[in-house]
């Protein structure tokens, strides 16, 4: 529908992101297969993938839709419980190859349903109000899970089969990236960003604001649910206390650190935020202090205009190389990559 010229820039950028992820995967996979990765490293792989999925999906609402939501952990928990209960019920009946994808689908769909249910009242609000209400919904979900019998209550849900592997998690990461990047670059995605940039103008252009806001919200909830299922199948216990607002805020930290509206940034910062506290284990008592300090330094660095200019240069170079290969004129304007 669009001219190819117009599409090239985001397409190249997306391909670079996918290439980075695939190369990283290949390197890590080779390390694991040749026995060069420590167990400590290996145990972080699935959590990294889970955080990437969560961050990229949260970026859809926070970065592209422009609405600060603090209830992402709530959707994750709904998906996790739905998927794990499904797996526990089907453990004897279905083989793992069928059960696990189905569990992810179930978890994602249940989370998406909750996204619709919560979205109806929540999306009437904007900005700070919306943030607070999503925070409240996240807490409500957690309280309900604690008080239900079949979720195991405060003691947690046990007995989920340990199906999550690095390869499966990576495939889900790829699917998430492709779906969300394509969505963002599609007509729907442009409508979503138009709403973020100027709601009234977007409405005046005939964009169905409610529909597109709901769409972004529900898709984000779906992927949060899928990530939750992966999480639930990675550990033998699922306790509701994991999904408190601290978890939502941690996810928000990932998105903000990576840059709102930058999917590649989300991927990179998800890796950093997951690995950092583990890499700092050598510091013993100082660990969480240093973690907090590093976060502050990174946030300040990330927000500084000089650093942004530097990043712009790096991006420009990478882009220019790719574009030059296609003998295109280097029209790319510098710095326009991450803060669009």
């Amino acid at each position: 529908m669009d001219s190819i010229k117009k599409k090239r820039k985001p397409l190249t950028s997306n391909l670079i992101t996918l290439a980075i992820v695939c190369v990283l995967f290949a390197v890590v996979f080779i390390l694991v297969e040749t026995g060069n990765a420590t167990r400590h490293m290996r145990s972080m792989l699935v959590p990294i993938c889970i955080n990437i999925i969560l961050a990229v999906s949260l970026n859809l609402t926070v970065g592209f839709l422009g609405e600060l939501t603090l209830g992402h952990a709530g959707f994750m928990s709904v998906g996790a419980y739905a998927g794990c209960l499904f797996s526990i019920a089907m453990e004897e009946i279905l083989p793992m190859a069928l059960r696990f994808p189905l569990a992810m689908l179930v978890g994602g769909l249940v989370a998406a349903c909750f996204g619709v249910l919560i979205g109806i009242p929540v999306l009437r609000l904007h900005g700070d109000y919306l943030a607070i209400v999503t925070l409240a919904f996240g807490e409500i979900i957690r309280s309900i899970i604690i008080n239900l019998e079949f979720t195991g209550g405060a003691a947690g849900l046990k007995g989920t089969p340990q199906d999550s592997t690095f390869v499966i998690a990576f495939v889900v990461v790829l699917i998430t990236l492709v779906v969300i990047m394509n969505l963002v670059n599609s007509r729907h995605g442009r409508a979503i960003t138009a709403i973020r940039d100027n709601r009234i103008a977007a409405e005046a252009c005939g964009i169905n604001v409610t529909y597109f806001r709901m769409l972004a919200f529900v898709i984000a909830a779906f992927f949060a649910g899928v990530a939750g299922v992966l999480y639930g199948h990675n550990l033998s216990i699922l306790s509701a206390s994991t999904f408190d607002y601290n978890k939502s805020i941690e996810l928000l930290v990932i998105v903000v650190l990576g840059g709102m509206g930058s999917i590649r940034g989300s991927v990179i910062s998800a890796i950093i935020i997951t690995v950092l506290p583990e890499a700092l284990r050598e510091l013993d008592d100082f660990r969480m202090l240093i973690y907090a300090l590093v976060l502050i330094v990174m946030m300040i660095l990330n927000a500084s205009p000089r650093f942004a200019a530097l990043k712009g240069k790096l991006n420009y170079k990478a882009l220019a190389d790719a574009v030059r290969a296609k003998s295109a004129s280097s029209k790319a304007n510098k710095g326009g990559q991450t803060h669009e």
Partner: peptide, 13 residues
């Protein structure tokens, strides 16, 4: 729980 498993693997290392 997740951190505990990471810590366990580090200890095994």
């Amino acid at each position: 729980a997740e951190m505990a498993v990471n810590a366990y693997n580090k200890l095994m290392d």
